[in-house]
């Protein structure tokens, strides 16, 4: 009959033994009334515990209480304050540009002429390089598109991300 195998009954109950171990346990139980009875008790206790606790139901008011407590917590959407802030920033930027324009007004003609010449030269140089190295231009263009897509996705993820930071405990 061999020695009792009660310490293996729990794993046997969970089907967590190797094939050899399972065969040993089953062979032992065929010839040992005590271990066989102990196994029946394990099965019965597990069923009783499961049934006893599955009959426990949460009080009806629990769901309502949780939702009432959650309601004041802001959702992860941009608040009105965010839009007011954005509007204030844009307005400040516009005012700054207006002031700069007023200061630079006497030199406007010179600045426009210099700007035009620099842009013209840059465009000519760019055209020259594109015609001599087309593969470099395509690579540069692909890189720019990738960078733009990446930035867009990151921005989307950031906007979707919840601002609430509290941990589980």
């Amino acid at each position: 009959m061999g020695k009792h195998i009660e310490d293996k009954l729990s794993a046997y109950l969970d089907d967590a033994l190797t094939t050899d171990e399972r065969i040993d346990v089953e062979e032992h139980m065929d010839s040992c009334a005590a271990c066989s009875e102990a196994f029946r008790e394990y099965v019965a206790v597990r069923e009783l515990v499961r049934t006893a606790f599955h009959s426990v139901k949460a009080p009806e008011r629990l769901e309502e209480a949780v939702m009432e407590a959650i309601r004041p917590i802001p959702a992860a959407k941009p608040s009105k304050r965010f839009f007011y802030g954005l509007a204030a920033c844009l307005l400040s930027l516009l005012m700054l540009l207006a002031v700069l324009f007023a200061i630079m007004a006497p030199y406007t003609t010179t600045l426009i002429t210099v700007g035009y010449r620099v842009t013209d030269n840059l465009l000519q140089a760019a055209g020259h390089y594109v015609s001599s190295l087309p593969s470099a231009f395509i690579g540069l263009l692909a890189g720019a598109i990738l960078l733009l897509t990446g930035s867009g996705l990151t921005l989307k993820a950031l906007l979707n991300h919840s601002p609430l930071k509290e941990g589980p405990s």
Binding site: A69, I70, I73, H161, K165, E166, G167, P168
Partner: peptide, 14 residues
């Protein structure tokens, strides 16, 4: 249970 759900709500991002 109530506290667990509140914590879960505020930590869902994690």
């Amino acid at each position: 249970a109530q506290e667990a759900f509140l914590k879960a709500y505020t930590s869902l991002a994690k």
